[in-house]
């Protein structure tokens, strides 16, 4: 071997090692940002968290540091994300059934819809809020739970329907044909075979959408309003957790800011639980599907 040849080999090896090290560092940094975020929320939030925080609504002067909790926001967020999720399911399921069972194969309409939903996925949530606001102006609605539900339902619609779409797409065509050949209509097939077969995947999609809905603030800022009481009707304004965090952080009082951290801990915990649940579901799903 000539000396020149071996030095060439060495520079190649050095380059390889150099970039490999960079990649590992990049991966570690990205993973550690997650760690830093979770640690920060826990370290700051845990000391400020108390039972009254999550069992009481804000009393007078809460935002000045007086007694109370964020139960209004917790319940409001659950109502809102729950309502939006249900509404989105009611739209998503039929769409996905249409895409995969009713529509002719290679339909241009279906591809266009899928494309449009993908684009909608990328639209920022503040725009959903602004659009929700224009709808409400159109119908003469005021900031209310209903307004928030509509805006958030539109926000999670692309997430949910495309996730369901991917799951239903994977159902073997033979299974559908078996059902058709037994004389079932497409509707019966959709309701009995497809939904049952894809149920875990559909639930995962629902959970992911719920998680996105409960964590979003920008879309509800215009539409759901904010209030210190638990909403009693869908036409009343509703508080939400992300906005409660935002407002509490915006006060000049350290005690109230601490409550913002505690609220953030609650929200993060909810999100974590949802994402772990959906992961478990997704796993059980892949276990049962025969490929």
């Amino acid at each position: 071997m000539s000396r020149k040849g071996s030095s060439k080999v060495n520079t190649r090896k050095v380059e390889e090692q150099f970039f490999k090290t960079l990649m590992i560092i990049a991966t570690l940094i990205i993973i550690s940002t997650l760690g830093v975020i979770l640690l920060t929320v826990i370290m700051k939030g845990l000391p400020a968290l108390s039972l009254s925080m999550i069992t009481q609504t804000p009393k007078g002067g809460y935002y000045l540091g007086k007694e109370g909790g964020i139960l209004n926001a917790i319940i409001g967020s659950l109502y809102l994300a729950g309502g939006a999720t249900v509404l989105a399911i009611l739209i998503s399921l039929p769409i996905v059934m249409y895409f995969n069972i009713y529509a002719p194969k290679k339909s241009l309409f279906v591809s266009a819809c899928r494309f449009s939903l993908d684009v909608l996925w990328g639209v920022p949530s503040i725009v959903f809020g602004a659009f929700g606001f224009t709808i409400m102006l159109f119908f003469g609605l005021r900031a209310s739970l209903l307004g928030g539900i509509i805006a958030v339902a539109l926000l999670v619609l692309p997430v949910m329907s495309r996730a369901m779409d991917e799951v239903v797409k994977m159902i073997p065509r033979d299974l559908l044909e078996a059902s058709f050949s037994l004389g079932a209509t497409r509707l019966q097939t959709a309701a009995k075979v497809v939904v049952r077969q894809a149920l875990p995947g559909i639930l995962t999609a629902v959970l992911v959408a719920f998680g996105r809905g409960i964590g979003d603030a920008a879309s509800v800022i215009f539409t759901a309003g904010f209030t210190d009481s638990i909403p009693t009707s869908i036409l009343r304004p509703a508080a939400t957790l992300p906005l409660a965090i935002f407002f509490q952080l915006g006060t000049p009082f350290p005690e109230v800011q601490d409550r913002a951290y505690a609220s953030a801990l609650v929200l993060t915990a909810v999100i974590l639980i949802i994402s772990i649940l959906s992961r478990v579901l997704a796993k059980s799903f892949t276990k049962h599907v025969v490929k």
Binding site: T27, I30, I31, T33, L34, V36, I37, T40, V41, K44, V208, G211, R212, I214, G215, D216, A217, A218, P242, I245, F246, L249, A260, Y261, A264, L267, T268, I271, L272, I274, S275, R279
Partner: peptide, 19 residues
């Protein structure tokens, strides 16, 4: 690593803001 990155994607933006 992949699930952790998914988790990062799921964190609400107010929480990012706080951090």
């Amino acid at each position: 690593v992949k699930p952790l990155i998914d988790l990062l994607a799921g964190i609400p933006s107010v929480v990012y803001g706080i951090c």
